[in-house]
Amino acid sequence: MDFDRMRNYLLPCLLFLALGAAWEILAVFSGWSPAVFPGPRLAAKAAWELIANGTLLKHSVASLFRVTVGFYLAVIFALPLGMILGWWKTGQISANALIQFLRPISPLAWIPLAMLWFGIGDKPAIFLIFLSSFFPLLVSTITAVNHINSLYFQVAANFNFTRIEILSKIIFPAILPSILPALRISLGIAWLVVVAAEMIAVKSGLGYLILDSRNALRMDYVMDAMIAIGLIGICLDRVISQLNKIKSVSWGSV
């Protein structure tokens, strides 16, 4: 137990401390100007300002809102579509080329069109996040459905399942264990994309904070925003990996 505790919490914290120490040493001895490479103490002071005046919270909430909406939209569309395409071979074969064509187009390439279509504000950012998560989720869902043990479909046929029941009571629960890692990865991608999206189309969010701070030459703020992005990223990952502990899902890891 003690070793597990140490391995799970203490050692990761020590690594963070080591990174902080390396940062401090570099800042002190490199001779770079604090304006170009602020050390941790300067960043901490700036962080306190950002927290005290609510700026950091405001921007974090704005970013999280966009990621949440965009990601949920992607899940809502990609999962059912992937389940149907995975099950319906003709549809899958027909759609595959189109999916593989659209998938490698970076969400960032859509920025000009997104701004033109959706204007300025939350909408283009949400659209980009949706795009970034949609295709990985769709492809993972189709693959997961293709790998369902065919025995389960025979059981369903034997007990006279309807099509809807096959989708909801066989396909959906059967793919959950393999969909969770895909959700985790695409949420990570969504969080990557939000920062880029916010640098262009909006006046809030952590991406905007970075861009705005750069324009003001406040590298300490830039670093604080980066740290906030990383910390929120950890939290999002923790939240989504909790889903693995649901009992009707945990069979997949046996």
Partner: peptide
Amino acid sequence: NIFVFQHNGLLPWL
């Protein structure tokens, strides 16, 4: 007519 399968035919998520 119910089929009892050669390998485990129970649905593992139930």
